[in-house]
Design a protein around this nucleic acid. Structure first.
Length: 111
DNA sequence: GCGGTGACGGTCG
DNA sequence: CCGACCGCCACCG
């Protein structure tokens, strides 16, 4: 069924435009699964090689690549760089410049 | 059916 | 800035 959790997650990931990144939590929200960021990572881990899903645009909320270099983190870094996204030596991405807008203000912006 | 595990997130010290 | 803790829930043995 197209309504499976994984399909929703993959669809949300596909919605991230080139040159932008989003966190696992952001994807969970876009997929209508708030608070289930772990499942996003799990779903991405299940992707087959050569998938058209842009998994490399997903990073953790610390703004860093969450995947060990040997496990694909290096590839992710290369792909991001090819999209014009700068990745620091420590694996950090400049969120202020590339974060895909998904964040919301908390209820009542205090004002 | 139970318990451990994990490409996470938010908070606290 | 960073590590430790806890909460979250699907997958697997």
């Amino acid at each position: 069924m197209a309504g499976s959790t994984y399909d929703r997650i993959y669809r949300a990931v596909r919605s991230i435009p080139r040159g932008r990144v989003a966190s696992y939590g952001d994807i969970a929200r876009l997929a209508g699964l708030p608070g289930r960021a772990r499942q996003v990572g799990y779903a991405l881990a299940a992707l087959p090689t050569g998938t058209s899903v842009p998994w490399h645009r997903i990073i953790n909320h610390a703004g860093r690549i969450s995947l060990p270099p040997e496990e694909g983190g290096l590839e992710q870094r290369i792909r991001l760089t090819e999209e014009g996204i700068r990745v620091d030596p420590g694996g950090r991405v400049n969120l202020a410049e590339h974060h895909f807008k998904v964040r919301r203000r908390r209820t009542k912006p205090a004002r």
